[in-house]
């Protein structure tokens, strides 16, 4: 089954079959990364432009490695050092990229909806690598892939997402993705960072519940995901005291004992160790945090393959 999509903007409208297609394809892509020659000629002659208007290390490098492993040409454009600094508008930047002959644009932007704008103005495919607080679809897909590898099935799993849900696009995409696959999603964190309205974020497939008390939320969980406390977004004083946060919502090995014995510990990175996650949890036997990074390349290869192979030139 091919993916009948030109763009990857959001996982919210992905069907269960579409998610499984991406995960199955990523499974095959992993075998490419385990070969002596970690490169297939699949996207030879295709150009991928990474446009990152916000700082990013792992996502940008992950997309770059994914493109190169499929033999595409990958060009990186950062906001600093490009004509964006000289005042060029976003739409003009799109036209320039278009004229240079890109086949796919990977885009990160501080404004939600910027990739939708790109998709309207560009003739090529657009992949959202994070837009404002709205979504980070490739991260959700790699999280789903990582959990499926360990659990086998996502149906009925209890996932707890802990922390700054309000400012997290990763959380939003994960909520949609895991709920779509039939998992039960629990959100935990201080009320200032977790408005009650998230409990209504329900799409009929799974369950999304808000439980501010982490010890209750984590009870029997199959997956515990800590979110980064985004200090750069916290100018509004939503957290009076970081030590209090760590005590009440930090993921520690002691707290994990309330979860299922085989529960997975995840973090989208970069981590603030000792704040939202303690070193004994981050590097403990249940942690799959480095696997998330490795799997990210395979999942992004699958995304690039499904969007670009089979697209007429």
């Amino acid at each position: 089954m091919p993916l009948h999509r030109k763009h990857l903007i959001d996982v919210a409208d992905f069907s269960r079959d579409e998610v499984e297609l991406v995960l199955d394809t990523a499974e095959a892509m992993r075998t490419v990364l385990e070969r002596p020659i970690r490169r297939a000629p699949t996207l030879r002659g295709k150009s991928i432009v990474n446009m990152f208007f916000e700082p990013s290390t792992r996502t940008r490098i992950s997309f770059e490695l994914a493109g190169k492993s499929l033999s595409a040409d990958v060009v990186n454009v950062a906001a600093s050092g490009s004509s964006v600094e000289k005042g060029e508008s976003l739409v003009d930047t799109f036209h320039t990229i278009q004229a240079l002959g890109a086949d796919l644009v990977v885009m990160r932007h501080a404004c939600a909806g910027a990739p939708d704008l790109a998709a309207r103005h560009l003739a090529c495919s657009v992949v959202n690598a994070g837009d404002g607080l709205r979504g980070h679809p490739s991260q959700a897909l790699l999280d789903l892939f990582t959990v499926r590898q360990h659990a086998g099935d996502l149906e009925g799993l209890k996932l707890v997402i802990v922390g700054d849900v309000l400012h997290s696009r990763v959380a939003r995409s994960d909520i949609w993705g895991f709920a779509r696959m039939g998992a039960h999603v629990y959100l935990s964190g201080p009320p200032t960072l977790l408005p009650a309205g998230f409990g209504d974020l329900l799409d009929g497939d799974g369950v999304v519940r808000v439980e501010h008390d982490l010890d209750r939320a984590i009870d029997g969980a199959d997956v515990v995901m800590a979110l980064r406390i985004q200090k750069e977004r916290m100018a509004g004083g939503l957290l009076p005291d970081l030590r209090e946060y760590a005590r009440r919502w930090g993921i520690t090995a002691a707290r994990l004992r309330r979860a299922d014995r085989r529960a997975l510990v995840m973090h989208p990175g970069p981590m603030n160790q000792g704040l939202e996650i303690s070193p004994d949890a981050a590097y403990g036997p249940q942690s799959v945090i480095t696997e998330q990074v490795t799997n990210g390349v395979a999942v992004r290869m699958a995304i690039l393959y499904l969007l670009l192979a089979g697209a007429p030139t």
Binding site: L3, A28, T31, L306, G310
Partner: peptide, 13 residues
Amino acid sequence: LTSRAGAPDVHPT
């Protein structure tokens, strides 16, 4: 790959 409609399924090697 550029003349087909849709990417073929990838099987593990």
